[in-house]
Design a binder for these strands. Structure first.
Lengths: 225, 225
DNA sequence: CCAATAGTGTCTCTAAGACAATATAAG
DNA sequence: CTTATATTGTCTTAGAGACACTATTGG
């Protein structure tokens, strides 16, 4: 059988919440094509490597860690004929959600890596589109799944969880209604028994992620979309 | 730059509703590997072809038509190293929803093609998994989008639309509550003014698909998942 | 005391689900 | 008439959103 030859890459949309902003991990490209431009981290799938394994490997290389509290899922694939000047390249994009981490170190292919607010885009290849798709996926999944906890450290307050929603959705949420919904949705969060202290105001109870994989009832955005 | 070489295919999960069952279009493979086994229709992406274009082409080749009332969207990609004995093959799966069509004709690569109820699976490659993912995507999308109309002809009754939901979800739905929800969700369906006749019972009004891309309020499954 | 943040309770309204009742056809 | 299907209406209850109110800290 005769068929065309492709290269396959994985590209990562790595999102985190820093302060009140949803940020994406970008790298400045250290080689052609698009040398010097900002792009999503990624790289070629190895000869005997599964797609998900390639994504985990790239994530570990770029961020230094894969595990505690994060989330990784396949997003979509992009394969327009002219998307890479080197030839026919199909990329499988993955979406990663991580808690706020120290500034990432540069990987092998990248001159530098940085957290940038999503929206300030002008990325190499078709990465603007991939990023937009990843952000929309994250926004949507916060409604129906407990994935917001992937943005939080192992123990967190309800206010911190709410700030995740506010940053990802870009809208303010009533703290009182949110508190009720987050604590009554079965399996969303479970109390540790400890509390925070230090700042002004009443100390907040700490929670861990619960065991649910789906939020019921969901926590819905205002607009619906 | 040095990198591994892949072949890229598209595979199609083509679903329709026949009677009260959700059915998938399967082909019997006419060449190695897995010769004679049932599989999802699909084929190699051509040298200068976009992924979506390849999916549309395969759909047209297998079903004889792409357009009136159907829906095509990317599902996911699958690239385990051993999934195809010919070598490293990544497949991009697409999900198509079509109205009930006459029996499809065989394509070039396929000895025969048939509608089979989903669930009777034992397919070649990793197509069982791909089919399961496609069915789950369809089930989920019926809740939040007006995609059920993609299974219907251009003009349909509320009862026909309800039977789509019942077939895809495998559960019965109260006709009276469904009628209210379908007709009051803005942009889901719009009346043509005509009615059906012929059978016993009160004639049913005919509807076309509306302009909405999202259902609000959604039409939810009993179980939630 | 006051300011600030956490958490609870109450009200109204939308919509889901159960199901009675009515409408319009064929036989 | 009876049977069958379509369509409307009514009731109860869950949950969303608005927002008053209480709780617990630091200064």
């Amino acid at each position: 059988m005769n068929y065309p030859v492709f290269a396959v890459t994985v590209d990562l949309v790595v999102l985190t919440v820093r302060g009140d902003e949803l940020c994406v991990l970008l790298v400045r490209r250290g080689c052609e094509p698009h040398l010097g431009e900002w792009a999503l981290p990624g790289g070629f799938v190895l000869a005997d490597e599964d797609l998900a394994a390639a994504a985990r490997r790239e994530l570990a290389e770029e961020t230094g860690l894969a595990g505690p509290g994060g989330h990784l899922e396949q997003l979509a694939s992009y394969g327009a004929p002219e998307r890479d000047p080197r030839g026919r390249v199909v990329t499988v994009a993955y979406l990663a959600l991580l808690p706020d981490l120290p500034v990432p170190k540069a990987g092998t292919d990248a001159a530098e890596a940085e957290w940038r607010p999503v929206g300030e885009r002008r990325l190499a290849f078709d990465h603007d589109r991939i990023l937009a798709d990843g952000v929309e996926r994250a926004r949507s999944k916060l409604e129906y799944t407990p994935l917001a906890t992937a943005f939080c450290p192992p123990e967190f307050t309800i206010a911190a969880l709410r700030q995740v929603y506010e940053a990802v959705w870009g809208e303010t949420i009533d703290p009182r209604n949110f508190h009720r919904k987050a604590t009554t949705a079965p399996g969303f969060v479970s109390p540790t028994g400890d509390s925070t202290g230090g700042g002004p105001g009443r100390p907040a109870k700490l929670f861990r992620r619960g065991s649910a994989t789906l939020l019921n009832p969901p926590i819905l955005r205002r607009g619906g979309v």
